[in-house]
């Protein structure tokens, strides 16, 4: 086991108002998992990732993680530095660590090839499409070779064909790098397509409603989307989501 989230609760306090975002969330992530978290908007998905990344502290509960635990984080918005071109964005984490430029560039070039953006290394973010920016953000998150890749609705703002294309690419990257991925989305079909485990959260305050094993071969492709098994899994998750239930 790589990571265990134990009974996490988070309450945000801002100016006389308290928002209980998470309440007793527990789950385990094994090394090599593609672990998706689905749930309605505002149920605390981003909050979970931020706690795992150490950006915020939980109000109660704890997280068991290895010592010198490193994460790569892909934010809900692409979050590139607009004053740096593609390759300089990708090497940023290495630059912070003080890795030599040459070595960083060599690594970055390999990653850019992996994400199919080799010809764009000198382009500035303002001249990239939304999908390209997101791919750069993924390369940047991968460059430190973190144990875990945290992804917060990375494709949420993209159109369907682009999203499907990037889903297939992400599956390929996952298989190739054997990374552990924790992936947040509100798109059930995307979660099933990518993952080997899907955790379903309730409405706010988020609790784990169910964790589902996705018994599909590791390699995923677009044909899968029409298969009966896939559709059954999607429906099963959808039934567990409380999209249409009143409080």
């Amino acid at each position: 086991m790589l990571l265990e989230v134990k009974d996490i609760g988070v309450t945000y306090t801002s100016k006389e108002k308290e928002v209980k975002a998470l309440d007793g969330v527990s789950f385990k992530v094994e090394s090599g998992d593609f672990f998706s978290i689905v749930g309605p908007s505002g149920c605390g998905k981003t909050t979970i990732l931020k706690i795992i990344a150490g950006l915020i502290n939980s109000t109660n509960g704890e997280i068991l993680k290895p010592e010198d635990f490193e994460v790569g984080y892909v934010f809900q918005e692409h979050n590139l530095l607009e004053w740096r071109n593609v390759i300089d964005n990708v090497i940023l984490p290495l630059e912070i660590k003080g890795v030599a430029k040459e070595e960083s560039y060599k690594k970055a070039k390999k990653l850019l090839k992996l994400i199919d953006l080799k010809e764009f290394e000198n382009v500035y973010p303002k001249d990239l499409s939304g999908g390209m920016k997101q791919r750069v953000a993924i390369a940047r998150a991968l460059i430190c070779e973190p144990e875990v890749l945290l992804m917060d609705e990375p494709f949420g703002a993209l159109d369907e064909p682009t999203r499907l294309k990037l889903n297939t690419e992400l599956n390929r990257i996952w298989r190739k790098t054997k990374k552990t991925v924790i992936f947040v989305t509100h798109n059930v079909s995307e979660a099933v397509f990518l993952s080997n485990k899907v955790a379903i959260l309730t409405k706010r305050p988020g609790k784990i409603k169910k964790i589902l094993k996705i018994d599909l071969p590791e390699e995923r492709n677009l044909k899968l989307l029409d298969s009966e098994k896939f559709i059954k899994l999607v429906l099963k998750i959808r039934k567990n989501l409380e999209y249409f239930k009143e409080k």
Partner: peptide, 12 residues
């Protein structure tokens, strides 16, 4: 952007 500061924090 607040997210950029978070990114920097993650990169230590």
């Amino acid at each position: 952007d607040k997210n950029l500061l978070d990114l920097m924090k993650i990169c230590k």
